[in-house]
Design a protein around this nucleic acid. Sequence first.
RNA 1: GCCGCCGUAGCUCAGCAGGUAGAGCACUCGGCUGUUAACCGAGCGGUCGUCGGUUCAAAUCCGACCAGCGGCGCCA
Length: 429
Amino acid sequence: MHSIKEILSDEFIGKPVTVHGWVYRTRSSGKIAFVVLRDSSGIVQSVASIAALGDERFKTISSLGIESSLELQGTVKKDDRAITGYEIEVTDFKVYQRDESFPITKDKGEEFLLDNRHLWLRSQEFSAVLKVRSTVFKAFADFFYSEGYYQVQAPFMVSTATEGGTTLFKVPFFGSEVSLTQSAQFYLETMIFSLEKVFTISPSFRAEKSRTWRHLTEYWHGEAEVAWVDNSGMMDIEERMIHFIIGRVLEENQPELAILGRDMGDLRRWTEPFLRMTYSDLIKRAQQTGMNIKYGDDLGSDEEKQIMIHYDRPVFVTHYPKELKTFYHRPDPKNPGELLCHDLLAPEGYGEIIGGSERIWDPDQLKERMEEYKLNPDDYYWYMDLRKYGSVPHSGFGLGLDRAIMWICKLDNIKNAIPFPRTIRRTKP
RNA sequence: GCCGCCGUAGCUCAGCAGGUAGAGCACUCGGCUGUUAACCGAGCGGUCGUCGGUUCAAAUCCGACCAGCGGCGCCA
Protein backbone atom coordinates (compact mmCIF):
# COMPACT_ATOMS: atom_id res chain seq x y z
CA MET A 1 0.00 0.00 0.00
CA HIS A 2 1.31 3.45 -0.90
CA SER A 3 0.32 6.99 -0.11
CA ILE A 4 -0.55 9.13 -3.11
CA LYS A 5 2.16 11.68 -2.35
CA GLU A 6 4.73 8.90 -2.30
CA ILE A 7 3.99 7.60 -5.80
CA LEU A 8 4.08 11.03 -7.45
CA SER A 9 7.72 10.47 -8.30
CA ASP A 10 9.91 9.25 -11.16
CA GLU A 11 11.03 6.35 -8.96
CA PHE A 12 7.61 4.77 -9.32
CA ILE A 13 7.33 5.02 -13.10
CA GLY A 14 6.45 1.61 -14.53
CA LYS A 15 5.96 0.09 -11.11
CA PRO A 16 2.80 -1.58 -9.81
CA VAL A 17 1.21 0.23 -6.88
CA THR A 18 -1.80 -0.09 -4.63
CA VAL A 19 -3.41 3.06 -3.22
CA HIS A 20 -6.64 3.69 -1.41
CA GLY A 21 -8.73 6.73 -0.88
CA TRP A 22 -11.78 8.62 -2.09
CA VAL A 23 -13.00 9.69 -5.49
CA TYR A 24 -12.19 13.36 -5.99
CA ARG A 25 -13.41 13.75 -9.61
CA THR A 26 -14.48 11.42 -12.38
CA ARG A 27 -14.76 11.88 -16.12
CA SER A 28 -15.81 9.29 -18.59
CA SER A 29 -15.64 9.18 -22.38
CA GLY A 30 -17.35 5.93 -23.18
CA LYS A 31 -14.38 3.62 -23.40
CA ILE A 32 -11.92 5.46 -21.17
CA ALA A 33 -12.52 6.95 -17.74
CA PHE A 34 -10.49 9.19 -15.47
CA VAL A 35 -10.89 8.78 -11.74
CA VAL A 36 -9.00 11.28 -9.63
CA LEU A 37 -8.31 9.68 -6.26
CA ARG A 38 -7.72 11.60 -3.04
CA ASP A 39 -6.09 10.51 0.21
CA SER A 40 -4.74 12.50 3.14
CA SER A 41 -1.48 13.11 1.30
CA GLY A 42 -2.68 14.36 -2.08
CA ILE A 43 -4.49 13.55 -5.32
CA VAL A 44 -3.62 11.49 -8.38
CA GLN A 45 -5.40 10.78 -11.66
CA SER A 46 -6.06 7.19 -12.59
CA VAL A 47 -7.04 5.95 -16.04
CA ALA A 48 -9.45 3.06 -16.49
CA SER A 49 -10.11 1.49 -19.87
CA ILE A 50 -12.42 -1.19 -21.20
CA ALA A 51 -9.38 -2.85 -22.73
CA ALA A 52 -7.81 -3.42 -19.30
CA LEU A 53 -10.93 -4.04 -17.20
CA GLY A 54 -13.66 -5.45 -19.44
CA ASP A 55 -17.13 -4.02 -19.97
CA GLU A 56 -18.68 -4.67 -16.59
CA ARG A 57 -15.74 -3.63 -14.38
CA PHE A 58 -15.28 -0.56 -16.54
CA LYS A 59 -18.91 0.40 -16.09
CA THR A 60 -18.56 0.02 -12.31
CA ILE A 61 -15.52 2.24 -11.97
CA SER A 62 -16.58 4.86 -14.50
CA SER A 63 -19.90 5.41 -12.74
CA LEU A 64 -18.52 5.95 -9.23
CA GLY A 65 -19.82 9.09 -7.55
CA ILE A 66 -17.68 11.71 -5.84
CA GLU A 67 -16.35 10.51 -2.44
CA SER A 68 -16.84 6.81 -3.15
CA SER A 69 -14.15 4.93 -1.22
CA LEU A 70 -11.97 2.47 -3.05
CA GLU A 71 -8.66 0.71 -3.47
CA LEU A 72 -6.83 0.90 -6.78
CA GLN A 73 -4.12 -1.27 -8.25
CA GLY A 74 -2.21 -0.20 -11.30
CA THR A 75 0.98 1.00 -12.90
CA VAL A 76 2.44 4.48 -12.50
CA LYS A 77 2.98 6.56 -15.64
CA LYS A 78 4.32 10.05 -16.09
CA ASP A 79 1.87 12.23 -18.02
CA ASP A 80 1.73 16.00 -18.22
CA ARG A 81 -2.00 15.88 -18.87
CA ALA A 82 -2.61 14.42 -15.40
CA ILE A 83 -3.40 16.97 -12.70
CA THR A 84 -0.41 16.08 -10.52
CA GLY A 85 1.96 15.02 -13.31
CA TYR A 86 1.63 11.26 -12.87
CA GLU A 87 -1.22 8.84 -13.35
CA ILE A 88 -2.10 5.27 -12.52
CA GLU A 89 -3.21 2.85 -15.25
CA VAL A 90 -5.79 0.79 -13.40
CA THR A 91 -5.38 -2.96 -13.52
CA ASP A 92 -7.77 -3.79 -10.68
CA PHE A 93 -9.82 -2.08 -8.01
CA LYS A 94 -12.05 -2.74 -5.03
CA VAL A 95 -14.94 -0.48 -4.08
CA TYR A 96 -15.55 -0.11 -0.34
CA GLN A 97 -18.58 2.11 -0.71
CA ARG A 98 -20.27 3.57 -3.76
CA ASP A 99 -21.39 7.14 -3.34
CA GLU A 100 -24.45 8.21 -5.30
CA SER A 101 -24.62 11.91 -4.68
CA PHE A 102 -22.21 13.69 -2.38
CA PRO A 103 -24.03 16.81 -1.15
CA ILE A 104 -21.21 19.23 -1.88
CA THR A 105 -21.00 20.17 -5.54
CA LYS A 106 -19.52 23.08 -7.38
CA ASP A 107 -21.89 25.77 -6.15
CA LYS A 108 -20.86 26.29 -2.58
CA GLY A 109 -22.83 28.73 -0.47
CA GLU A 110 -21.14 29.78 2.78
CA GLU A 111 -24.08 28.69 4.86
CA PHE A 112 -24.51 25.35 3.13
CA LEU A 113 -20.83 24.60 3.61
CA LEU A 114 -21.12 25.43 7.31
CA ASP A 115 -24.13 23.11 7.63
CA ASN A 116 -22.03 20.47 5.90
CA ARG A 117 -18.72 21.23 7.54
CA HIS A 118 -18.34 17.55 8.48
CA LEU A 119 -18.16 16.83 4.73
CA TRP A 120 -16.52 20.07 3.58
CA LEU A 121 -13.55 19.12 5.77
CA ARG A 122 -12.58 16.74 2.98
CA SER A 123 -11.95 19.55 0.49
CA GLN A 124 -8.42 20.41 -0.57
CA GLU A 125 -8.77 23.91 0.86
CA PHE A 126 -10.03 22.86 4.23
CA SER A 127 -7.56 19.98 4.51
CA ALA A 128 -4.82 22.52 3.89
CA VAL A 129 -6.09 24.71 6.74
CA LEU A 130 -6.26 21.70 9.06
CA LYS A 131 -2.67 20.75 8.23
CA VAL A 132 -1.42 24.29 8.93
CA ARG A 133 -3.49 24.33 12.10
CA SER A 134 -1.80 21.15 13.26
CA THR A 135 1.62 22.71 12.65
CA VAL A 136 0.68 25.87 14.56
CA PHE A 137 -0.56 23.97 17.62
CA LYS A 138 2.53 21.78 17.70
CA ALA A 139 4.92 24.69 17.11
CA PHE A 140 3.30 26.69 19.92
CA ALA A 141 3.99 23.88 22.38
CA ASP A 142 7.42 23.05 20.96
CA PHE A 143 8.54 26.66 21.28
CA PHE A 144 7.73 26.80 24.98
CA TYR A 145 9.21 23.39 25.70
CA SER A 146 12.39 24.52 23.94
CA GLU A 147 12.56 27.53 26.26
CA GLY A 148 12.13 25.46 29.41
CA TYR A 149 8.42 25.95 30.10
CA TYR A 150 6.06 23.41 31.64
CA GLN A 151 2.72 22.68 30.04
CA VAL A 152 -0.09 22.93 32.58
CA GLN A 153 -3.87 22.62 32.60
CA ALA A 154 -6.44 24.86 34.21
CA PRO A 155 -10.11 24.08 34.95
CA PHE A 156 -12.72 24.95 32.34
CA MET A 157 -15.47 25.33 34.95
CA VAL A 158 -14.71 28.35 37.06
CA SER A 159 -16.28 30.73 39.53
CA THR A 160 -14.25 33.90 38.89
CA ALA A 161 -14.30 36.15 35.86
CA THR A 162 -11.07 37.38 34.31
CA GLU A 163 -12.40 39.83 31.76
CA GLY A 164 -15.31 41.71 33.34
CA GLY A 165 -18.78 40.61 34.29
CA THR A 166 -21.03 40.44 31.22
CA THR A 167 -19.47 37.80 29.03
CA LEU A 168 -19.71 34.62 31.09
CA PHE A 169 -21.32 31.38 30.01
CA LYS A 170 -23.38 30.10 32.91
CA VAL A 171 -23.66 26.36 33.41
CA PRO A 172 -25.82 24.54 35.99
CA PHE A 173 -23.66 22.91 38.65
CA PHE A 174 -25.29 20.64 41.24
CA GLY A 175 -27.95 23.13 42.19
CA SER A 176 -25.73 26.16 41.84
CA GLU A 177 -23.96 27.72 38.88
CA VAL A 178 -20.47 27.96 37.41
CA SER A 179 -19.03 29.67 34.36
CA LEU A 180 -17.00 28.36 31.46
CA THR A 181 -13.50 29.77 31.49
CA GLN A 182 -12.64 32.91 29.52
CA SER A 183 -8.92 32.52 30.11
CA ALA A 184 -6.59 30.27 32.09
CA GLN A 185 -4.50 33.27 33.08
CA PHE A 186 -5.25 33.42 36.81
CA TYR A 187 -4.57 29.71 37.18
CA LEU A 188 -1.34 30.01 35.22
CA GLU A 189 -0.33 32.80 37.59
CA THR A 190 -0.73 30.42 40.54
CA MET A 191 1.64 27.94 38.93
CA ILE A 192 4.56 30.28 38.25
CA PHE A 193 5.28 30.18 41.97
CA SER A 194 6.37 26.57 41.65
CA LEU A 195 7.26 26.20 37.97
CA GLU A 196 8.20 29.81 37.06
CA LYS A 197 7.52 29.32 33.33
CA VAL A 198 4.22 27.76 32.28
CA PHE A 199 1.99 27.56 29.21
CA THR A 200 -1.31 25.99 28.26
CA ILE A 201 -3.46 25.39 25.20
CA SER A 202 -7.16 25.27 25.97
CA PRO A 203 -10.53 26.49 24.79
CA SER A 204 -11.87 29.78 26.06
CA PHE A 205 -15.53 30.70 26.02
CA ARG A 206 -17.01 34.14 25.50
CA ALA A 207 -20.74 34.75 25.71
CA GLU A 208 -20.64 38.09 23.88
CA LYS A 209 -23.24 38.20 21.16
CA SER A 210 -20.56 38.94 18.60
CA ARG A 211 -21.35 38.62 14.93
CA THR A 212 -18.05 39.41 13.32
CA TRP A 213 -15.47 37.88 11.01
CA ARG A 214 -13.01 37.36 13.85
CA HIS A 215 -15.00 36.24 16.89
CA LEU A 216 -15.95 32.76 18.04
CA THR A 217 -17.86 31.88 21.18
CA GLU A 218 -15.49 28.95 21.72
CA TYR A 219 -11.92 29.49 20.60
CA TRP A 220 -8.49 28.02 21.24
CA HIS A 221 -6.32 30.05 23.50
CA GLY A 222 -2.58 29.63 23.80
CA GLU A 223 -1.46 31.26 27.02
CA ALA A 224 1.81 31.60 28.91
CA GLU A 225 2.84 33.15 32.20
CA VAL A 226 6.42 33.79 33.37
CA ALA A 227 7.99 34.89 36.67
CA TRP A 228 10.68 37.59 36.76
CA VAL A 229 9.85 38.94 33.30
CA ASP A 230 8.63 42.47 32.57
CA ASN A 231 6.38 43.80 29.82
CA SER A 232 9.20 44.34 27.36
CA GLY A 233 10.77 40.94 28.11
CA MET A 234 7.38 39.36 27.52
CA MET A 235 7.16 40.91 24.07
CA ASP A 236 10.63 39.52 23.28
CA ILE A 237 9.35 36.04 24.12
CA GLU A 238 6.17 36.45 22.09
CA GLU A 239 8.10 37.74 19.10
CA ARG A 240 10.41 34.72 19.21
CA MET A 241 7.34 32.51 19.50
CA ILE A 242 5.59 33.95 16.45
CA HIS A 243 8.85 33.75 14.48
CA PHE A 244 9.18 30.12 15.53
CA ILE A 245 5.61 29.23 14.54
CA ILE A 246 5.88 30.99 11.15
CA GLY A 247 9.22 29.27 10.56
CA ARG A 248 7.66 25.87 11.19
CA VAL A 249 4.78 26.58 8.83
CA LEU A 250 7.32 27.61 6.17
CA GLU A 251 9.19 24.35 6.69
CA GLU A 252 6.22 22.02 6.79
CA ASN A 253 3.32 23.52 4.88
CA GLN A 254 4.51 24.86 1.54
CA PRO A 255 1.99 22.81 -0.50
CA GLU A 256 -0.83 23.89 1.81
CA LEU A 257 0.15 27.57 1.61
CA ALA A 258 0.11 27.27 -2.18
CA ILE A 259 -3.42 25.81 -2.11
CA LEU A 260 -4.51 28.65 0.17
CA GLY A 261 -2.92 31.35 -1.97
CA ARG A 262 -0.64 32.58 0.79
CA ASP A 263 2.62 34.02 -0.53
CA MET A 264 5.73 32.57 1.08
CA GLY A 265 7.41 35.98 0.94
CA ASP A 266 4.79 37.32 3.34
CA LEU A 267 5.61 34.65 5.89
CA ARG A 268 9.38 35.16 5.51
CA ARG A 269 8.94 38.85 6.23
CA TRP A 270 7.12 37.96 9.44
CA THR A 271 10.16 36.10 10.72
CA GLU A 272 11.94 39.48 10.86
CA PRO A 273 11.72 41.82 13.87
CA PHE A 274 8.30 43.31 14.67
CA LEU A 275 7.60 46.97 15.32
CA ARG A 276 6.78 48.40 18.74
CA MET A 277 5.06 51.64 19.54
CA THR A 278 3.20 53.13 22.44
CA TYR A 279 -0.50 53.80 22.31
CA SER A 280 0.08 57.55 22.49
CA ASP A 281 2.57 57.47 19.58
CA LEU A 282 0.13 55.42 17.60
CA ILE A 283 -2.61 57.99 18.22
CA LYS A 284 -0.27 60.78 17.09
CA ARG A 285 0.64 58.94 13.91
CA ALA A 286 -2.99 58.15 13.23
CA GLN A 287 -3.86 61.82 13.61
CA GLN A 288 -1.05 62.75 11.21
CA THR A 289 -2.61 60.48 8.59
CA GLY A 290 -5.87 62.35 9.06
CA MET A 291 -7.79 59.93 11.24
CA ASN A 292 -10.39 61.34 13.57
CA ILE A 293 -9.11 59.80 16.78
CA LYS A 294 -7.90 61.20 20.08
CA TYR A 295 -5.95 60.01 23.11
CA GLY A 296 -8.26 57.87 25.23
CA ASP A 297 -10.25 56.42 22.33
CA ASP A 298 -10.25 52.66 22.04
CA LEU A 299 -8.97 51.15 18.84
CA GLY A 300 -11.97 49.77 16.99
CA SER A 301 -11.89 47.35 14.13
CA ASP A 302 -11.81 50.17 11.57
CA GLU A 303 -9.07 52.06 13.38
CA GLU A 304 -6.92 48.94 13.62
CA LYS A 305 -7.30 48.32 9.90
CA GLN A 306 -6.55 51.91 8.93
CA ILE A 307 -3.46 51.97 11.12
CA MET A 308 -2.15 48.60 9.99
CA ILE A 309 -2.31 49.39 6.27
CA HIS A 310 0.87 51.41 6.87
CA TYR A 311 2.81 48.40 8.17
CA ASP A 312 3.74 45.14 6.46
CA ARG A 313 4.54 43.20 9.62
CA PRO A 314 3.07 42.73 13.11
CA VAL A 315 3.10 45.69 15.49
CA PHE A 316 3.14 45.65 19.29
CA VAL A 317 1.09 48.47 20.75
CA THR A 318 2.04 49.21 24.37
CA HIS A 319 1.11 51.54 27.23
CA TYR A 320 -2.63 51.82 26.80
CA PRO A 321 -4.44 54.26 29.10
CA LYS A 322 -5.66 52.29 32.09
CA GLU A 323 -9.31 53.07 31.32
CA LEU A 324 -9.10 50.92 28.18
CA LYS A 325 -8.00 47.67 29.80
CA THR A 326 -9.04 45.47 32.69
CA PHE A 327 -7.79 45.56 36.26
CA TYR A 328 -4.83 43.16 36.50
CA HIS A 329 -2.40 44.98 34.15
CA ARG A 330 0.39 46.78 36.01
CA PRO A 331 0.35 50.60 35.75
CA ASP A 332 3.62 52.11 34.55
CA PRO A 333 5.40 53.43 37.69
CA LYS A 334 6.75 56.32 35.57
CA ASN A 335 3.27 57.20 34.36
CA PRO A 336 0.52 55.51 36.41
CA GLY A 337 -2.20 56.52 33.95
CA GLU A 338 -0.79 54.06 31.43
CA LEU A 339 -0.36 50.30 31.66
CA LEU A 340 2.61 48.02 31.07
CA CYS A 341 0.60 46.04 28.57
CA HIS A 342 0.71 45.18 24.91
CA ASP A 343 -1.45 43.99 22.05
CA LEU A 344 0.07 42.40 18.98
CA LEU A 345 -1.66 43.55 15.79
CA ALA A 346 -1.25 41.36 12.73
CA PRO A 347 -0.84 43.07 9.35
CA GLU A 348 -3.21 42.92 6.35
CA GLY A 349 -6.10 44.04 8.51
CA TYR A 350 -6.13 40.91 10.66
CA GLY A 351 -5.70 42.99 13.82
CA GLU A 352 -5.28 41.87 17.38
CA ILE A 353 -4.02 38.33 17.84
CA ILE A 354 -2.29 38.67 21.22
CA GLY A 355 -3.11 40.53 24.39
CA GLY A 356 -0.54 40.51 27.17
CA SER A 357 0.99 42.48 30.02
CA GLU A 358 3.06 42.70 33.12
CA ARG A 359 0.69 41.81 35.97
CA ILE A 360 0.16 43.84 39.11
CA TRP A 361 2.15 42.10 41.81
CA ASP A 362 1.67 44.53 44.71
CA PRO A 363 -1.32 43.48 46.86
CA ASP A 364 -2.50 47.00 47.73
CA GLN A 365 -2.35 48.14 44.16
CA LEU A 366 -4.32 45.10 42.98
CA LYS A 367 -6.98 45.68 45.62
CA GLU A 368 -7.26 49.31 44.61
CA ARG A 369 -7.69 48.44 40.93
CA MET A 370 -10.32 45.79 41.73
CA GLU A 371 -12.30 48.33 43.68
CA GLU A 372 -12.21 50.69 40.71
CA TYR A 373 -13.81 47.87 38.72
CA LYS A 374 -16.37 47.19 41.48
CA LEU A 375 -15.02 43.69 42.02
CA ASN A 376 -15.07 42.06 45.43
CA PRO A 377 -11.51 40.97 46.40
CA ASP A 378 -13.04 38.23 48.60
CA ASP A 379 -14.29 36.48 45.45
CA TYR A 380 -10.70 36.46 44.26
CA TYR A 381 -9.16 35.43 47.57
CA TRP A 382 -6.86 32.88 45.96
CA TYR A 383 -5.70 35.37 43.34
CA MET A 384 -5.03 37.93 46.08
CA ASP A 385 -3.07 35.31 48.05
CA LEU A 386 -0.53 35.15 45.22
CA ARG A 387 0.35 38.77 46.03
CA LYS A 388 0.53 37.99 49.74
CA TYR A 389 3.01 35.12 49.79
CA GLY A 390 6.28 35.70 47.98
CA SER A 391 4.86 37.88 45.19
CA VAL A 392 7.20 38.48 42.26
CA PRO A 393 7.13 40.55 39.06
CA HIS A 394 5.66 38.50 36.27
CA SER A 395 4.06 38.77 32.86
CA GLY A 396 1.92 36.75 30.51
CA PHE A 397 -0.14 36.76 27.36
CA GLY A 398 -2.92 35.05 25.47
CA LEU A 399 -2.74 34.20 21.78
CA GLY A 400 -5.90 33.58 19.78
CA LEU A 401 -4.70 30.47 17.96
CA ASP A 402 -7.62 30.47 15.53
CA ARG A 403 -6.94 34.12 14.72
CA ALA A 404 -3.28 33.39 14.13
CA ILE A 405 -4.23 30.53 11.81
CA MET A 406 -6.71 32.75 9.95
CA TRP A 407 -3.93 35.28 9.42
CA ILE A 408 -1.25 32.76 8.40
CA CYS A 409 -3.65 30.99 6.00
CA LYS A 410 -5.01 34.31 4.65
CA LEU A 411 -8.63 33.35 5.42
CA ASP A 412 -11.45 35.85 5.30
CA ASN A 413 -13.36 34.51 8.30
CA ILE A 414 -12.30 32.90 11.57
CA LYS A 415 -14.95 30.23 11.07
CA ASN A 416 -12.75 28.81 8.33
CA ALA A 417 -9.79 28.46 10.69
CA ILE A 418 -11.48 25.91 12.99
CA PRO A 419 -13.18 22.64 11.97
CA PHE A 420 -16.39 23.12 13.93
CA PRO A 421 -16.94 26.80 14.71
CA ARG A 422 -19.19 27.75 17.58
CA THR A 423 -20.88 31.09 17.16
CA ILE A 424 -23.90 32.81 18.59
CA ARG A 425 -26.17 30.88 16.21
CA ARG A 426 -24.22 27.76 15.34
CA THR A 427 -23.74 24.63 17.43
CA LYS A 428 -24.06 22.10 14.59
CA PRO A 429 -22.43 20.07 13.26
C1' G B 1 -27.36 45.33 22.50
C1' C B 2 -27.46 48.36 17.70
C1' C B 3 -27.68 48.77 12.10
C1' G B 4 -28.48 46.39 7.34
C1' C B 5 -29.91 42.15 4.22
C1' C B 6 -32.10 37.46 2.69
C1' G B 7 -35.72 33.12 2.54
C1' U B 8 -38.24 30.14 -4.95
C1' A B 9 -36.02 22.49 -7.13
C1' G B 10 -30.97 18.60 -3.19
C1' C B 11 -27.30 23.09 -4.23
C1' U B 12 -26.37 28.25 -6.63
C1' C B 13 -29.74 31.65 -8.34
C1' A B 14 -33.32 34.17 -12.05
C1' G B 15 -38.52 35.46 -12.16
C1' C B 16 -41.53 40.94 -8.58
C1' A B 17 -45.30 47.59 -12.72
C1' G B 18 -50.21 40.81 -9.94
C1' G B 19 -52.22 36.39 -14.83
C1' U B 20 -50.80 30.38 -12.15
C1' A B 21 -42.72 28.44 -12.11
C1' G B 22 -37.43 28.83 -14.94
C1' A B 23 -31.80 28.16 -15.74
C1' G B 24 -27.10 25.99 -14.33
C1' C B 25 -25.15 22.18 -11.21
C1' A B 26 -26.36 17.35 -8.81
C1' C B 27 -29.04 12.73 -9.93
C1' U B 28 -31.11 8.90 -13.89
C1' C B 29 -30.83 7.19 -19.09
C1' G B 30 -28.28 7.53 -23.95
C1' G B 31 -23.59 9.15 -26.90
C1' C B 32 -18.22 9.91 -27.01
C1' U B 33 -10.63 6.45 -26.20
C1' G B 34 -7.06 11.85 -23.20
C1' U B 35 -10.44 14.32 -19.83
C1' U B 36 -8.80 18.60 -16.35
C1' A B 37 -15.17 21.11 -11.48
C1' A B 38 -15.00 17.52 -19.75
C1' C B 39 -18.69 17.79 -23.56
C1' C B 40 -23.61 16.65 -26.41
C1' G B 41 -28.97 14.92 -26.03
C1' A B 42 -33.18 13.46 -23.01
C1' G B 43 -35.46 12.72 -18.23
C1' C B 44 -36.40 13.41 -12.84
C1' G B 45 -37.16 17.32 -9.57
C1' G B 46 -41.32 22.92 -6.41
C1' U B 47 -47.88 23.42 -0.97
C1' C B 48 -42.25 29.93 -4.07
C1' G B 49 -40.18 30.13 4.92
C1' U B 50 -45.18 30.21 7.98
C1' C B 51 -49.84 32.46 9.05
C1' G B 52 -53.14 36.20 7.82
C1' G B 53 -54.87 40.44 4.60
C1' U B 54 -55.94 43.12 -0.31
C1' U B 55 -57.63 41.21 -5.21
C1' C B 56 -61.54 37.92 -10.12
C1' A B 57 -56.35 36.34 -9.57
C1' A B 58 -50.40 36.71 -5.07
C1' A B 59 -43.71 33.81 -5.65
C1' U B 60 -44.83 39.05 -6.89
C1' C B 61 -48.50 44.04 -2.96
C1' C B 62 -49.44 44.76 2.72
C1' G B 63 -48.94 42.93 7.98
C1' A B 64 -47.24 39.66 11.71
C1' C B 65 -44.24 35.67 12.92
C1' C B 66 -40.18 32.12 12.18
C1' A B 67 -35.34 30.99 10.34
C1' G B 68 -30.70 32.55 8.67
C1' C B 69 -26.69 35.95 6.84
C1' G B 70 -23.46 40.39 7.02
C1' G B 71 -21.46 44.58 9.85
C1' C B 72 -20.63 47.42 14.57
C1' G B 73 -19.62 47.26 19.82
C1' C B 74 -16.87 43.73 23.05
C1' C B 75 -12.40 40.96 22.77
C1' A B 76 -8.13 36.65 21.37
